[in-house]
């Protein structure tokens, strides 16, 4: 125990502590990298597409944790950004502008505009009013999507091809798309990690705890929160673009309020504000849903009470548990 303390405070210990902090994520990424191989051997295309969906939701959950865990902004409308990205991709592919080099900038612009407008209004409120107004904006986009009769309306839009990348038809292969998604996920994880430790992240975290103090120091809390809102929105929008390509289908259910709720579950289940929380939460939730639904058609009868029990009795989230394990391992090593 004493050794561990000394090690933790010495220079060498700092490096191992940093590695320890991201060890669970590195493990998850390594396993995900083997996904296509495993699919070859066991699950086939189904496993690949399941893992892709898992990773895409993880990107969205990681971006949502920037808001909830770091910024204290409980957004109940985050799926709107996934939907925005997905519809930009879906519509552009349908209209023949299928290249990612065109779709991505367009999706980023659309997410930014939507985030700036709705964020600026939502951030006037706080607490439960913020939860509900973000939900309201999400619903507005949901109904907009439902009414796009030229693009499938309620029934959704089937895509007959995937995006090209600078003219090359790379993504029609599930394997390339898979690794593109994995790299994006790692990028999202690294980006949020960097943000949290940066000057910007420090202000954002401080404002979560005591906005009045941060304001009195000379920071405009509103600007920092709005910036975080835009960053998170754009990340989810990018996930949406990839999701449309993965599913080859876009529908209003991509941005239903239940999806936003699911993202919140991932963040909380994984451990709010923890380095690996949203990632582990997303992986665990998708895996759990998959396992339960393979056992019984009525899997929600089990999942619902499980969720209630988790909230009532598990306090730190999965990442908290994982961190404790890592710490124990370091101590032994």
């Amino acid at each position: 125990m004493k050794d561990a303390l000394e090690q933790a405070t010495s220079g060498g210990g700092k490096v191992s502590r940093d590695w320890g902090a991201i060890a669970p994520a590195v493990l998850v990424f390594a396993l995900l990298a083997l996904g296509p191989l495993a699919a070859e051997a066991y699950g086939g295309a189904y496993l690949t597409s399941l893992l892709m969906r898992m990773m895409l939701l993880a990107i969205a959950a990681i971006s949502l944790d920037l808001l909830i865990g770091q910024g204290g902004m409980v957004s109940f409308g985050h799926a709107a950004f996934i939907g925005l990205g997905a519809y930009v991709a879906g519509i552009m592919i349908t209209e023949g502008a299928a290249d990612l080099a065109m779709i991505l900038p367009m999706a980023i612009v659309a997410s930014t505009v939507f985030a700036v407008v709705t964020g600026a209004i939502s951030l006037r409120t706080s607490g439960v009013y913020f939860i509900m107004i973000t939900l309201a904006f999400g619903q507005m986009l949901f109904f907009t999507a439902s009414s796009l009769s030229a693009y499938g309306g309620d029934d959704g839009l089937t895509l007959w091809e995937r995006s090209t990348v600078f003219g090359f038809d790379l993504l029609s292969s599930n394997v390339t798309l898979y690794y593109l998604i994995l790299v994006t996920l790692i990028g999202a994880y690294a980006l949020v990690g960097a943000l949290v430790g940066s000057r910007f992240g420090r202000v954002l975290r401080a404002a979560k705890e005591n906005p009045t103090r941060v304001e009195a120091l000379g920071f405009s809390v509103f600007s920092y929160r709005l910036t975080a809102y835009v960053i998170a929105g754009v990340m989810a929008g990018v996930a949406g673009v990839l999701m449309a390509n993965q599913a080859e289908f876009v529908s209003p259910s991509t941005l239903a309020w239940q999806r936003s709720g699911e993202l919140i579950i991932m963040v909380v289940l994984g451990g709010m504000g923890l380095r690996n929380g949203a990632l582990l939460g997303a992986v665990a939730l998708v895996a759990l849903e998959e396992t339960l639904s393979s056992i019984t058609h009525d899997w929600r009868l089990i999942f619902g009470p499980l969720l209630v029990l988790t909230v009532l009795y598990a306090k730190t989230g999965l990442a908290g548990v994982a961190d404790a394990w890592v710490a124990r391992l370091w101590r032994r090593a």
Binding site: G197, S198, R199, F200, G201, V203, L217, G218, F219, T227
Partner: peptide, 22 residues
């Protein structure tokens, strides 16, 4: 970190997204 945050307020922009503030 409480005090460093205050120092940060008076030294350049805090819209810096990379680099460890600590």
């Amino acid at each position: 970190e409480n005090v460093a945050l205050a120092a940060q307020a008076r030294s350049g922009s805090s819209f810096r997204f990379f680099g460890r503030a600590k």
